[in-house]
Simulated scan of single mutants.
Amino acid sequence: MIQALFEYQREIYLAVAQHLKSFATDGNWLALLAVLPMGIVFGAAHALTPGHSKTLLAAYITGSQVKLSRGLLVSLALSLTHISLAVLIAVLALPVVSIALGSVGRAPALEALSRGLLGLVGVWMIWRALRGRHQHHTHEGEAVGVMAGLIPCPLTLFVMTFAIARGVPWAGLVFAVAMMAGVAITLGIVVALAVLFRKGSVAIFDRFGSNAARISTLLEIVTGLFLIGAAVRQFLAA
C-alpha cells in the first residue's frame, strides 16, 4: 500500500511539472484553472503518504475533549501551516531545507521544533489530567495544529521551486492552494475517525461501568505520553 502511494506520488510530481511547464510556455490561465481539481486530488493523495502528522493529530483529537467542529479547525490549521511554510521557504529561498542525500526536502530543524513543542503539549496534557482539569484554552487546538504543521510540505516545495524556476510563481501558488485543500480533506477525515474512535471507546468503557471522567483522564494521559514519546524519538534520531 505504501509503495503504491509512493509510486502515485511520483506520478503526481511528473504531472504537476508537466502542467507548470505548459503554463510557462503558453500562459493559458483557463487551462491551469481546469486542472485545479487534479491539484486537490494530488494534495489528498499526498497527505496519505507517511508524514503530515496524521498520527499525532489523531492522538490529540482522541485524547482531548474537542468536538468535531473544533477538531476540523485543528486539521485546517495544520494544513495551512504545512503548505504555507513550504511556500515561504521557496519564495524567500530560506536555507532550512536539507539537500543531503536521502533527506532532500526535509527541514530537520523545523521537525525538531515541531516535535519539541508537541512534547511540551504532551507534558501539559498529563499535568492537566492528573489535576483533574479537562478545560481547554480557547485556541489550544489550533495552536497544536500550527505546531504539528511546522514541517514544510515537500510536494509544495517542489511545485513552488519548479514554478519559480520557470518564471511562473503565481501558477505554483495556485497549485499550492489547491493542494492545501486536498491535504485538509484527508486530515479532516482523520479527525472525524479519531472523534468516532473516542466516542466509541467511551461508550464501550461506559458499558462496563467506568466513570466518564476517568476515561477522559486516561485518554489524555496516554495522548500526552504519546506526544512526549514522539518528541524524544525525534531528538534521538537527530
Rank of each mutant, 00 (worst) to 15 (best):
I215N: 11
L80H: 08
L110D: 04
I99R: 14
T138E: 15
L36H: 10
T186V: 08
S75G: 10
S201F: 10
V41Y: 10
F42W: 05
G119Y: 00
H136K: 07
G51M: 11
P108K: 02
I221W: 05
A192D: 05
S210F: 10
L101W: 06
M180T: 07
G39Y: 01
I61Q: 12
V66E: 05
F175C: 10
S210M: 14
K54W: 04
L155T: 12
I215Y: 08
L85M: 15
G200T: 08
I164Y: 02
F235H: 14
I99M: 13
K67L: 12
A59V: 15
L32A: 12
S201R: 02
T223K: 00
P152E: 03
L85T: 14
A171R: 05
S64F: 03
F6Q: 13
G105S: 13
D206G: 10
I215L: 12
L236M: 11
Q3C: 01
S75M: 04
R115V: 01
V174C: 09
F42D: 09
G224C: 08
L113C: 09
L80M: 15
S69M: 03
M1I: 12
L157C: 05
P50L: 02
H52L: 08
E7K: 08
A176W: 01
V121N: 01
T161N: 14
I83P: 04
Y8A: 13
G209R: 14
Y60A: 11
G172C: 04
H52K: 06
S216M: 01
A181N: 06
T62Y: 07
A59K: 04
G200D: 05
A15C: 04
A212L: 11
A31G: 09
G27N: 04
L193H: 06
S98W: 01
G224F: 10
G149H: 07
G27I: 13
S103W: 01
I83K: 02
L101T: 15
F205R: 01
L68W: 08
A34F: 07
F162K: 09
A45P: 06
V168T: 13
G209M: 14
G172Y: 00
N28M: 09
L187I: 06
V159W: 02
A165K: 08
Q18P: 00
V35C: 08
S114C: 01
H46W: 11
L78T: 00
S98Q: 00
I164S: 13
M38F: 09
A17E: 14
A4Y: 09
D206E: 14
W127H: 08
I228A: 04
G141I: 00
I151S: 06
V97D: 00
S64Y: 03
G172H: 07
E140R: 12
W127I: 00
L101E: 12
S84H: 06
T186C: 03
L72W: 09
A230Y: 02
G224Y: 04
A112D: 06
L85I: 14
V104C: 07
A163M: 00
L187Q: 04
P95A: 07
A163N: 02
A237C: 03
I2Y: 08
P169G: 10
E220Q: 14
A238E: 11
P152C: 09
A213G: 04
F23I: 13
A148Q: 11
F158S: 09
